[in-house]
């Protein structure tokens, strides 16, 4: 059944977008943590997507999956605060390189994509129901 593939495609997209939302939440939550739990400074994480065929026999139906989580390699944000317990010899405290504005934009983009895919699912569902009702009246 080809229409069921639409459900699977939309489902992979929902999973991928929620992973992206997770990364945004993690970045925003750690925007002000000078030290992460691992000891090293926290770095902004970005989720990279990849298109993946749903099955070998249907190369035109492509879902999406998380390819990798990339860490932002840009230098940490240095704030001058000599009284801070984590301040270095120059009085600088290293904060994560999280760009809050960028994360907010990412969040809106992810939630819009999520909504769009939910609508795709709803449309496919209603088409399926109509198909099942063929020649019943």
């Amino acid at each position: 059944m080809s229409m069921t593939n639409v459900f699977q495609i939309a489902a992979t997209a929902l999973t991928a977008q929620s992973m992206r939302l997770n990364a945004v939440a993690s970045n925003l939550a750690n925007a002000d943590s000078a030290h992460s739990s691992t000891g090293a400074g926290y770095r902004a994480k970005q989720v990279v997507f990849q298109a993946v065929p749903m099955s070998p026999s249907t190369p035109w139906a492509q879902g999406v999956r998380m390819h990798s989580v990339q860490e932002d390699s840009s230098p940490p944000r240095l704030v001058y605060d000599p009284k801070h317990p984590l301040a270095d010899a120059n009085g600088h405290v290293a904060y994560p390189n999280v760009d809050v504005v960028e994360e907010m934009v990412n969040m809106i983009s992810a939630s819009r994509s999520y909504q769009t895919n939910v609508e795709v699912m709803a449309t496919a569902k209603s088409l399926m129901q109509h198909t099942l009702a063929i020649a019943q009246s």
């Binding site: 997209a13 035109w60 999406v64 088409l127």
Partner: peptide, 27 residues
């Protein structure tokens, strides 16, 4: 016609699902 419409629905759903995938080309 129904079969092809269903196929096309899949292709369009793929495009929408991959709207944030780097290097994905819409088909």
């Amino acid at each position: 016609a129904l079969d092809l419409r269903a196929r096309r629905q899949e292709i369009l759903a793929s495009n929408i699902a991959n709207s944030d995938t780097p290097n994905y080309k819409a088909r």
